[in-house]
Design a protein around this nucleic acid. Structure first.
Lengths: 146, 146
DNA sequence: GGCTTGTTGCGACTCAGTCTCGATAAATGG
DNA sequence: CCATTTATCGAGACTGAGTCGCAACAAGCC
């Protein structure tokens, strides 16, 4: 998760203009829990009469992704979604119950990847790991229901 | 990689009808190296006058994926592609030079995932790992060019 | 051979995402 | 403050992947 202010100031620091639509995007993203699609933002902005253009939403997401303020994840369904995140860690564990995501540090994974590279002879230069499961809260909710 | 015959016999074993279009798909997939998109197959089939319908190609890929004869991967570009594979191992390391893919066994990865689950409190129930890099051959080709 | 029913292909359709372009408005400097 | 420059925006047309409905077809089975 990122605060809207972080988004705005990061844009500013990189020399991008701070416009009303961009403030709007920052706010919409900040108030979101878990992952969201471009369409989600579009609908939410319409609901709030903020009325962002379709192109603007896509362009902004692309921009924010390039600044690591947001990361794109491909859900198992094939849908493209985004999660907001502090610039730094690079994988997400997404809850299939509530959609909330937490960051995962490389750590252990790194060693595993190096080993795979060694065994296959490939020079691994990029990877994407997406993890899905139930967060602690949803696990509890789930066991009550059953 | 799978042989076309494996595809056909697996379909048969699961009670699906062996039709000309399905034989065609099996052949097209068998002759493919590396990852391919639905569109690739479609174009190839047209080129060979096999003329599969668009819907058929999508439907067959879905079917083959459900039998683990083929697996869907999402390329970094966001494109949806498929790689053919023996039913069993579940990750692929895709060469960004030639597109050729090799399977990766879970092994080390498993331990890393368990550790992540423990730390975050999530009950991880599915994951997708996609690895991209240069295979040994492309590394050699590459170093010659530079 | 005839029947049943899974499979096919066509074409119309949907929906995400892109592109173009004229209008708008941030930032900057005087 | 105002003027200038130029990044950004929005509308809407467009593209291309993937889906759907349906009538025609043909595997598999007797």
């Amino acid at each position: 998760m990122v605060a809207g202010d972080t988004i705005v100031s990061t844009l500013q620091r990189h020399g991008y203009r701070i416009t009303a639509p961009r403030r709007g995007m920052a706010r919409l993203i900040a108030e979101r829990q878990g992952h969201f699609t471009a369409e989600d933002l579009l609908r939410a902005s319409r609901r709030q009469r903020a009325g962002l253009g379709r192109a603007t939403v896509f362009r902004s997401l692309e921009l924010l992704a390039s600044l690591d303020l947001v990361e794109r994840v491909d859900l198992p369904s094939g849908e493209h979604a985004y999660v907001s995140c502090e610039p730094a860690h690079h994988h997400h564990l997404v809850c299939s119950g509530c959609g909330r995501a937490v960051g995962v540090e490389e750590g252990d994974l790194d060693a595993a990847l190096r080993e795979i590279g060694r065994r296959t002879g490939y020079q691994i230069d990029s990877h994407r790991l997406e993890l899905f499961g139930l967060c602690a809260t949803c696990q509890r909710a789930d066991s009550k229901v059953n």
